[in-house]
């Protein structure tokens, strides 16, 4: 389980001038790509910190031309009427319960992630480790699930939720993503395929059952990929919009941040998009994911480096 490739960065090709130039070029390109990735976020922050009226003057200064925290305040429902007028021009009470929506998003994304990653891992184990009749056909069938336009499943799933009495409930929002997604199964299977078999073979020869092998051997070895998938699943669940909108249109105790934020931005009167409020809201909505991402990011990086057991 040793880190075999981690120390390559400094050594390879450092001998020739050409290689050095190459590395320098690579660094420049990487820096440029990072800048392109990050700049829009900075611009979103700058926009969120600026009054709407200042935005439309076309001022491109790198710092907020008309700095204010008001947009964040009003998204959080902390702005007074006078401040609302100052920010939007309207004595508007548009706001949403950020903490409630945050709680809902966390419940939804957490439950979906736990269920989806675990159950998909079980399936991936079967598809990568077990041999049974029709396995590859079944796997390809799962794959075709990727190709079904989500819009296609929307209505039947909605009817199902209605018949189960799960409209406007957490069950309804969570159910379609709880047991699997074709992506999750596909993802884990591809990585499980790369795991060396010798350990589990040893375990099975020692008399362990498949569930034990799955739990004690595969899951720990595949932890980095599981964490990666969990992060991907969490973010996807966090950003889901259309499904919670249609399945829980009338229950604020269930609606996630995306839906609440959207309602907030459409409540603001006027014709111009409320860029400031929107960007402030978006950043606030993305913040929890960011925190989780940073917390797990370290783990992601550390664990992803060991390249299986060779």
């Amino acid at each position: 389980m040793s880190t075999t490739s981690g120390n390559m960065a400094g050594t390879a090709g450092s001998g020739t001038i050409g290689a050095r130039v190459g590395r320098l070029t690579a660094w420049v390109i990487l820096a440029l790509i990072i800048f392109i990735s990050l700049f829009p976020f900075y611009w979103a922050l700058r926009t969120g910190l600026t009054f709407n009226r200042a935005l439309l003057t076309g001022d491109q200064s790198i710092l907020p031309p008309d700095l204010t925290w008001l947009n964040f305040k009003r998204v959080l429902g902390l702005a007074s009427d006078a401040e609302m007028v100052q920010a939007t021009g309207f004595e508007n009470s548009a706001s949403f319960d950020y903490l409630l929506a945050l709680r809902n998003s966390m419940i939804i994304a957490t439950v979906i992630t736990i269920g989806q990653v675990f159950f998909s891992a079980m399936a991936a184990y079967a598809f990568s480790r077990l041999r049974f009749k029709g396995r590859d056909q079944l796997f390809f069938l799962y794959l075709t699930g990727l190709m079904v336009p989500p819009i296609f499943a929307l209505i039947p799933n909605l009817i199902l939720m209605k018949n189960l009495g799960w409209l406007n409930s957490f069950q309804g929002v969570i159910a379609p993503f709880f047991l699997m997604t074709p992506f999750a199964v596909f993802f884990l299977r591809q990585f499980f395929l790369g795991i060396n078999r010798s350990l589990e073979e040893a375990a099975i020869i020692d008399g362990a059952g498949h569930f034990t092998v799955f739990r004690r051997v595969i899951l720990p070895i595949a932890a980095p990929q599981m964490v990666t998938l969990a992060v991907l699943t969490y973010v996807t669940a966090w950003n889901e919009f259309l499904w919670p909108l249609v399945v829980a249109p009338q229950e604020e105790n269930v609606q996630p941040l995306t839906v609440a934020l959207n309602a907030f931005t459409t409540q603001v009167p006027g014709t111009q998009p409320d860029w400031s409020g929107l960007m402030a809201g978006t950043l606030l909505a993305a913040l929890p994911v960011l925190v989780i991402f940073i917390a797990f990011g370290r783990r992601l990086v550390d664990s992803i480096q060991f390249s299986g057991i060779k």
Partner: peptide, 19 residues
């Protein structure tokens, strides 16, 4: 209350599921 676009999408979906 829903924004104009979401309103009709949501309403159509709600009709389709008899809700």
């Amino acid at each position: 209350q829903f924004g104009w676009g979401d309103y009709w999408t949501g309403l159509t979906a709600a009709f389709a599921s008899d809700s």
